[in-house]
Protein backbone atom coordinates (compact mmCIF):
# COMPACT_ATOMS: atom_id res chain seq x y z
CA UNK A 1 0.00 0.00 0.00
CA UNK A 2 1.29 3.44 -0.89
CA UNK A 3 2.16 5.77 1.95
CA UNK A 4 -0.14 8.75 2.17
CA UNK A 5 1.83 10.85 4.64
CA UNK A 6 4.19 13.68 3.94
CA UNK A 7 7.60 12.52 5.17
CA UNK A 8 9.67 15.58 4.45
CA UNK A 9 10.32 18.02 7.25
CA UNK A 10 9.68 21.36 5.55
CA UNK A 11 9.45 23.24 8.83
CA UNK A 12 13.17 23.02 9.59
CA UNK A 13 14.42 24.64 6.36
CA UNK A 14 11.66 27.25 6.67
CA UNK A 15 12.84 28.03 10.21
CA UNK A 16 16.46 28.21 9.01
CA UNK A 17 15.54 30.65 6.26
CA UNK A 18 13.51 32.58 8.81
CA UNK A 19 16.63 32.87 10.97
CA UNK A 20 18.51 34.19 7.93
CA UNK A 21 15.71 36.73 7.30
CA UNK A 22 15.78 37.92 10.91
CA UNK A 23 19.57 38.22 10.90
CA UNK A 24 19.55 40.08 7.62
CA UNK A 25 16.76 42.48 8.65
CA UNK A 26 18.32 43.33 11.99
CA UNK A 27 21.80 43.71 10.51
CA UNK A 28 20.45 46.08 7.89
CA UNK A 29 18.49 48.00 10.52
CA UNK A 30 21.69 48.33 12.55
CA UNK A 31 23.65 49.59 9.58
CA UNK A 32 20.92 52.12 8.78
CA UNK A 33 20.54 53.36 12.35
CA UNK A 34 24.30 53.69 12.88
CA UNK A 35 25.58 54.65 9.43
CA UNK A 36 29.37 54.69 9.19
CA UNK A 37 29.78 53.76 12.85
CA UNK A 38 31.46 50.78 14.47
CA UNK A 39 28.14 49.93 16.11
CA UNK A 40 26.75 48.93 12.71
CA UNK A 41 29.45 46.29 12.33
CA UNK A 42 29.07 45.15 15.93
CA UNK A 43 25.34 44.56 15.40
CA UNK A 44 25.93 42.52 12.25
CA UNK A 45 28.70 40.40 13.76
CA UNK A 46 27.03 40.09 17.13
CA UNK A 47 23.79 38.84 15.62
CA UNK A 48 25.61 36.33 13.43
CA UNK A 49 26.63 34.29 16.46
CA UNK A 50 23.11 33.52 17.74
CA UNK A 51 21.98 33.01 14.14
CA UNK A 52 24.67 30.41 13.54
CA UNK A 53 23.92 28.77 16.89
CA UNK A 54 20.29 28.54 15.82
CA UNK A 55 21.41 26.92 12.58
CA UNK A 56 23.47 24.40 14.52
CA UNK A 57 20.48 23.59 16.69
CA UNK A 58 18.29 23.12 13.62
CA UNK A 59 20.97 20.90 12.10
CA UNK A 60 20.84 18.62 15.11
CA UNK A 61 17.05 18.69 15.03
CA UNK A 62 16.99 17.69 11.38
CA UNK A 63 19.43 14.89 12.07
CA UNK A 64 16.99 13.10 14.31
CA UNK A 65 14.41 12.32 11.65
CA UNK A 66 14.35 10.37 8.40
CA UNK A 67 14.83 12.06 5.03
CA UNK A 68 17.23 14.56 6.58
CA UNK A 69 19.17 15.60 3.49
CA UNK A 70 16.57 18.13 2.32
CA UNK A 71 16.20 20.00 5.61
CA UNK A 72 19.95 19.97 6.03
CA UNK A 73 20.48 21.45 2.60
CA UNK A 74 17.98 24.15 3.52
CA UNK A 75 19.96 24.88 6.67
CA UNK A 76 23.18 24.95 4.66
CA UNK A 77 21.75 27.52 2.23
CA UNK A 78 20.44 29.66 5.07
CA UNK A 79 23.74 29.41 6.98
CA UNK A 80 25.64 30.39 3.85
CA UNK A 81 23.34 33.39 3.61
CA UNK A 82 24.19 34.37 7.19
CA UNK A 83 27.92 33.99 6.52
CA UNK A 84 27.60 36.05 3.34
CA UNK A 85 25.72 38.72 5.27
CA UNK A 86 28.31 39.01 8.01
CA UNK A 87 31.20 39.46 5.57
CA UNK A 88 30.49 43.16 4.85
CA UNK A 89 30.41 43.80 8.60
CA UNK A 90 33.80 42.14 8.94
CA UNK A 91 35.59 43.37 5.84
CA UNK A 92 33.32 45.88 4.08
Amino acid sequence: MADYRNDIDWLTPALALGVWAAHFSLSWAGSSIFPGQVAARVVGIGLALPALFAMAWLWRRAGAGPMRSVPRLGIAIAATGVVFTVLPALFG
Binding site: A14, F24, S31, I77, P88
Partner: peptide
Protein backbone atom coordinates in the same frame (compact mmCIF):
# COMPACT_ATOMS: atom_id res chain seq x y z
CA UNK B 1 11.16 28.11 -1.02
CA UNK B 2 14.70 29.41 -0.46
CA UNK B 3 14.40 31.73 -3.45
CA UNK B 4 11.13 33.01 -2.04
CA UNK B 5 12.81 33.90 1.24
CA UNK B 6 16.12 35.29 0.02
CA UNK B 7 14.53 37.36 -2.75
CA UNK B 8 13.16 39.63 -0.03
CA UNK B 9 16.70 40.54 0.99
CA UNK B 10 17.90 41.96 -2.29
CA UNK B 11 15.63 44.93 -2.94
CA UNK B 12 18.17 47.66 -2.24
CA UNK B 13 20.67 46.35 -4.79
CA UNK B 14 18.70 48.62 -7.12
CA UNK B 15 19.77 51.48 -4.86
CA UNK B 16 23.54 51.01 -4.76
CA UNK B 17 24.00 54.36 -6.47
CA UNK B 18 21.90 56.29 -3.95
CA UNK B 19 24.61 56.69 -1.34
CA UNK B 20 23.42 54.15 1.20
CA UNK B 21 25.80 53.38 4.09
CA UNK B 22 28.66 51.17 2.91
CA UNK B 23 27.89 48.26 5.20
CA UNK B 24 24.24 48.34 4.09
CA UNK B 25 25.22 48.05 0.45
CA UNK B 26 27.43 45.13 1.42
CA UNK B 27 24.51 43.32 3.02
CA UNK B 28 22.38 43.65 -0.09
CA UNK B 29 25.28 42.65 -2.31
CA UNK B 30 25.79 39.54 -0.18
Amino acid sequence: VATGFISFGVWAHHMFATGMPRVSTGYFSA
